[in-house]
Design a protein around this nucleic acid. Structure first.
Length: 723
DNA sequence: AGCTTAAGAATATGG
DNA sequence: TCCATATTCTTA
């Protein structure tokens, strides 16, 4: 693992690219800066002639079988060498592997069956890979000259459609594997747009996790996202426009180029884009975060996407039917309570019944909140909670909505993503402004944690009703002879707040009460209930209240949360903020944001907040809350990512551990572990995660606490005791 | 008329 | 006038 290194005197790891830039049309000032920025490589050696120390661990394959002797050269007007790998003779293949080893940079993209590449805006999500196009940038011993370089660089084209390559004859498979391993283990800078997608495919087809464990692929999309986390989904061409305005993406229109030739040009542009982005990352102090955190994560996420999570389909089907019946029951009850037929799913119809038919808002002593823009009364959860003592209908609606959400999203919705009895979520590394990961198809991070309970009516004789409990997480089960192991950071954001604010009372909370749960404690204190008698729901409420107050909730909304009057909520808030004095910290963050226009997290992640200087109170206040929230949430995201990297590194370097990382739920890492390795692995994980407080540049003033649980189903985990 | 689409509301998660 | 995600559903 590379360490995060803030020591500016020491050379930082860089793209390891010497000064062979042909920034067509880029201004000379930028050009000069890029040259300067590229003066050293990862080891701080002077470029452009670093030693070739590390070759691939695998010997170049000397005994490559003869394929076709015919050579196919394809010269474009710019003198681009485009060669088909399957047309190479044995000698040429060896020479190619040699070129890869010696290359200064390798830029590549997948090609798809519909003729597009990773550099085209994605139209069709499900199109299959048909080949690879690789640009090999050679080192040059002379001062780079544009013409020479263009001539030296060669483009390799590999057609690898499913019937041609992956399964086909062994010799071709061997050659391809060899080429890929040489690329991934080359000292050259490897650049790929959407690298995770590329890694996931080749990983599945012809690589092992150890083959790619130490490879680093530079991905411009991630670089651009770090520079501005608000642009999460820019296409390649968007990025080129944004970051190197003077570069065109080829296809000047003079000569009607083929798809392949256009893509060749795009690869060259991609290279230049990455150089520009590297420069910008360095200038903004984001390079370490990029190189040490985000890049290693790409491989980890690709591996996560390649492993699947088993779903208990029989159970899923049963619950779907059960919930369907219950929804019908509730609908009947609701219509009875309303005294008319209406669609329970239509909030407009509900609104007219609640407020125009029953006038419940007039009978309620608190004010009913309104929808954000529509200036109509809200039918959302907080509003219905206030109304449920006045009429049976709101309570029925609330239960209906809860069950409906579970059924449509986590039961029926989950079905649509089940493939061969399993699901494997897609992980988005650049989808959030806070630095967190997000997941979709299915969104495993959003699967309900708590069970839903309801009474099932027994229509057969008697009024005996049966209590049903359904836990959506119990649909996710571990494979045979394996268990899930979950490792949770406990109260990570609150601990980070204690660290940043250095407030004695907050620090004391974590140093003293290491054995008891903070939120349970607070809930017991506030509600005057014994610690042992606090329910999960009480604890959840306490948690929400704490974070809401810290991040600046208003007294009206807090009153809704607590079920009190705004005045009471206000005194509660003041008492809390007096006990835990965090306002020095929050004011400092806001002031810093105000002067710089952005805030940064523990590991240098950045979030611009232009509204921080707005004259509109609303916008400015929002930016202020976002600033405070980002410092904490972003730092927590940093730590969680660091944990993923450290643990994954430990697994790949271990000879016997077969543990697989399956999911990340923000502060929780979910593994699938062989039963025989459970205890041992648990100890390793706990140790690594807790030691993060002293890792690299991180020196937290609070201890990190990790809670480990294990079980055969995600819905039923029991705490694991390790030393 | 029936069709698609984009935005908003509601609710699940995480802190 | 807590923050930030995804998904489903309704509505225009």
């Amino acid at each position: 693992m590379s360490r995060i290194d803030a020591d500016k005197d020491q050379a930082q790891p860089s793209m390891n690219i010497p000064s062979s830039i042909e920034q067509q049309g880029a201004d000379s000032e930028t050009h000069r800066k890029v040259l300067l920025a590229l003066g050293t490589n990862a080891e701080g050696q002077s470029l452009p002639f670093p030693e070739l120390k590390r070759h691939s661990s695998e010997k170049p394959e000397r005994s490559l079988p003869e394929v076709e002797v015919k050579r196919k050269f394809n010269k474009t007007s710019e003198g681009v060498n485009l060669q088909n790998i399957w047309s190479m003779d044995q000698e040429q293949q060896c020479s190619l592997l040699d070129d890869i080893r010696r290359a200064q940079a390798i830029v590549l993209t997948m090609l798809f069956q519909n003729g597009s590449s990773q550099l085209c805006p994605a139209k069709d999500e499900n199109t299959l890979m048909s080949g690879l196009l690789v640009l090999i940038k050679k080192k040059s011993n002379v001062v780079p000259c544009k013409a020479e370089l263009e001539h030296d660089n060669n483009y390799i084209h590999m057609t690898v459609t499913d019937n041609r390559l992956w399964k086909i004859d062994e010799t071709q498979h061997k050659l391809l594997r060899s080429v890929l391993i040489h690329i991934l283990q080359s000292r050259a800078t490897v650049i790929c747009f959407n690298a995770k997608d590329f890694l996931r495919i080749i990983y599945r087809k012809c690589m092992t996790s150890r083959d790619v464990a130490h490879s680093v692929i530079f991905d411009p999309r991630i670089a651009a996202w770090l520079l501005n986390p608000a642009d999460s989904n820019s296409s390649f061409e968007d990025l080129v426009r944004k970051h190197c305005a003077t570069l065109s993406t080829g296809a000047t229109g003079d000569a009607p180029d083929t798809h392949l030739q256009i893509t060749c040009k795009k690869l060259s542009v991609l290279y230049n884009l990455m150089l520009t982005l590297e420069h910008k990352l360095q200038a903004e102090g984001l390079w370490d975060l990029f190189y040490n955190i985000e890049l290693p994560l790409i491989t980890i996420l690709a591996a996560m996407e390649n492993c699947s999570i088993e779903i208990n389909q029989e159970e899923l089907k049963r619950t779907s039917v059960l919930l369907g019946i219950q929804l019908k029951e509730l609908e009947k009850e609701a219509q009875h309570a309303a005294g008319q037929k209406f669609r329970l799913t239509s909030n407009n119809e509900l609104r007219t019944i609640l407020f125009e038919k029953f006038h419940l808002h007039l009978k309620c002593k608190n004010k009913i909140p309104q929808t954000s823009l529509g200036h109509v009364l809200s039918t959302a959860e907080p509003a219905l909670n206030q109304l449920k003592d006045l009429h049976p209908l709101p309570g029925i609606v609330l239960q209906f909505r809860q069950i409906q959400k579970i059924k449509s999203t986590f039961v029926d919705g989950l079905f649509t993503y089940v493939n061969k009895g399993c699901v494997s979520p897609t992980w988005n590394q650049t989808g959030t402004v806070s630095g967190r990961l997000s997941a979709k198809h299915p969104n495993i991070q959003g699967v309900s944690k708590f069970s839903v309970q309801f009474e099932k009516q027994q229509h057969l004789q008697g009024k005996t009703s049966e209590t049903i409990t359904i836990n959506p997480r119990s649909m996710f089960v571990s494979s045979k002879d394996h268990s899930f192991l979950a490792a949770d950071f406990s109260q990570i954001e609150l601990r980070l707040l204690a660290h940043f604010s250095a407030d004695p009372a907050l620090l004391k909370l974590f140093h003293e009460t290491a054995r008891t749960d903070v939120f349970t404690n607070l809930a017991a204190q506030w509600k005057d209930i014994a610690y042992e008698n606090i329910t999960q729901a009480d604890r959840e409420q306490a948690k929400r209240v704490v974070y809401s107050v810290i991040y600046g909730i208003g007294k009206e909304r807090l009153a809704e949360c607590l079920g009190t009057t705004p005045a009471e909520a206000n005194t509660f808030m003041e008492r809390f903020l007096q006990k835990y004095r965090v306002s020095d910290f929050t004011q400092k963050v806001i002031q810093e944001c105000d002067s710089k226009g952005f805030v940064i997290s523990l590991m240098g992640r950045k979030r611009p907040l232009p509204h921080i200087t707005s004259r509109h109170y609303g916008l400015r206040a929002q930016a202020e809350r976002q600033a405070v929230n980002f410092v904490i949430q972003g730092s927590a995201a940093d730590l969680c990512k660091l944990a993923m990297i450290k643990i994954s590194a430990s697994v790949t370097s271990s000879f016997h551990s077969t543990a697989r990382l399956i999911a990340q739920i923000h502060d929780e890492l979910l593994f699938e572990v062989q039963d025989s390795q459970l205890q041992e692995f648990a100890e390793v994980v706990k140790h690594i995660m807790e030691s993060l407080q002293h890792a690299d540049d991180v020196h937290l003033k609070v201890p990190l606490k990790v809670i480990l649980t294990s079980g055969k189903s995600w819905g039923c985990m029991t705490e694991l005791q390790v030393k």
